[in-house]
């Protein structure tokens, strides 16, 4: 009995000592520990992602021949349709090149695209943050925009050796400027993620909407695009859709609304990180450089 009590006391003391050491430890030590923990669990995250890929592979491999034949037939039709589309796009591309040559318009490729598989969603902030399987060694840098197709997924907030954390569009830590579809004046609005409870659908707030702006007619979802003016996101990427209507704030000068992200974000398997070729000033701030 005494031994048990002594054991319990010892564990309390050990816990207290650990907590005290953690509190008193310099921030550099704590940061190192946190980083070390992330790197320690990185292989597990990689393994988790890969095992999910493997499971998907075997799930597909177990399909019957008939199913495969039907899928092949469907695919052939889709391929045919896509061939036509490709031809059409090729024409447009040629026309685009021709116009650029005429107008001497040359857009430099400002971003390098790095494709990354999604390792996991950060369980501490569901909907708000994902972890991807590319990190510092793959050239990922903090602050880089993350996209899926032409839809914005979020922004890289922390980069580790082999993984990176991405704040989603709906994260309170995400903020960017945007245009609303149908706004001929191209007024910039502010998109800012909002904290939501874990069971609710995550959304972002769209504010500073001009009071004379009206949503698209006919119940058509109004898209929200990046402006490309802030130096982080390329222009005309889709941030999401206006949810419901707009409502005037009490201040009265502008309206606000909520933004729901594209449905693609709900089941992300793979994303592209657009690493800017030139480091923008904001990166230095994220890295905590001294400006005094």
């Amino acid at each position: 009995m005494d031994q048990n009590r002594q054991g319990a006391r010892a564990s309390y003391v050990a816990l207290s000592v650990f907590v005290a050491l953690w509190i008193l430890a310099p921030s550099a030590v704590r940061r190192f520990n946190r980083e070390a923990f992330v790197e320690f669990q990185a292989p597990a995250l990689h393994l988790l992602g890969k095992s999910r890929d493997l499971a998907t592979f075997w799930e597909k491999k177990s399909r019957s021949v008939e199913e495969m034949a039907a899928a092949g037939r469907d695919l052939a039709r889709v391929n045919a349709a896509l061939e036509i589309q490709i031809n059409k796009y090729e024409d447009i591309r040629r026309e685009n090149v021709r116009l650029r040559e005429i107008t001497h318009y040359n857009v430099p490729a400002e971003y390098m695209s790095v494709v990354a598989r999604v390792a996991t969603r950060d369980s501490s902030s569901w909907w708000q943050r994902i972890v991807i399987r590319k990190g510092r060694k793959d050239g990922i840098r903090p602050g880089a925009p993350v996209v899926f197709g032409n839809t914005v997924v979020g922004r890289v907030t922390a980069v580790h050796l082999t993984t990176s954390e991405v704040d989603l569009v709906t994260s309170p830590g995400f903020r960017c400027t945007a245009y609303l579809e149908g706004d001929e004046q191209n007024n910039i609005v502010l998109v800012n993620g909002v904290a939501s409870n874990s069971l609710g659908t995550a959304k972002a707030r769209v504010s500073v909407i001009p009071r004379d702006y009206s949503l698209l007619a006919g119940g058509q979802p109004t898209r929200v695009f990046t402006t490309g003016m802030g130096g982080v996101f390329p222009s005309r990427l889709i941030l999401g859709y206006i949810d419901g209507g707009t409502y005037a704030t009490q201040v009265g000068n502008f309206k606000e609304s909520l933004l729901v992200p594209s449905r693609d974000l709900y089941n992300l398997q793979e994303v592209s990180v657009l690493v800017p070729l030139h480091q923008n000033p904001g990166e230095a701030l994220i890295q905590g450089e001294d400006f005094q």
Binding site: G173, T177, V208, M229, G231, F233, G282
Partner: peptide, 24 residues
Amino acid sequence: GTKSVARFIEQFPVEGPIRLDQDN
């Protein structure tokens, strides 16, 4: 002017002691 606002909004960290305030 708009670019200046956009650059701050997108590049300056959201959290921290420096805040973006909007008035009329």
